[in-house]
Amino acid sequence: MIFLPFFEWCGETAVGIAIRDSLWLFPVIECVHLLALAMLGGAVLVVDMRLLGLGLRRHPLAELAREAQPWLVGSLLVMLVTGVLLFTSETLRAYYSPPFWWKMRLLLLAMLFTFTVRRKVLRSDDASGQPLFGKLVAVVSLSLWFGVGFSGRWIAFY
């Protein structure tokens, strides 16, 4: 309940009103959100698959992770900005949507995990010494991001 006044305020900002009143702004922002999803998914997958021993498994993990990092961070930033914009145009709908709250929880967890545990494993190349731990990290990472994407899509349904 404490969030409701904040959500209402967000919905009354100039940005929220502009997107709501425009025929094409919402779809265009949606498209960018979706394209960034493919990019983010790719950047996460290439590295997590490597941790699982799939895909580019001949390439050193730390180097692969370093290559993927700017794409991961860049696409995540695009997703966050476009996501906030989409949110401001339908704050009350989001407020009463259970998938929206699931998405926010999972997003918080996914980002925390990605920039702490996962980052540490990728940097130190720990996974080469402890392949099982690396696999666990990949499974957790993929599960969390899958949860974010899944619940995100379901905001439209519930």
Binding site: L34, L37, A38, M39, L40, G41, G42, A43, V44, L45, V46, F146, G149, F150, R153, W154, F157
Partner: peptide
């Protein structure tokens, strides 16, 4: 229907993610 649509959207990460790489 929502599950099929979600599959369609999320598989984008696997398909386009690899192609784009």
């Amino acid at each position: 229907y929502p599950l099929v649509e979600t599959t369609h959207v999320l598989t984008l990460c696997l398909f386009l993610g690899m192609i784009a790489t």
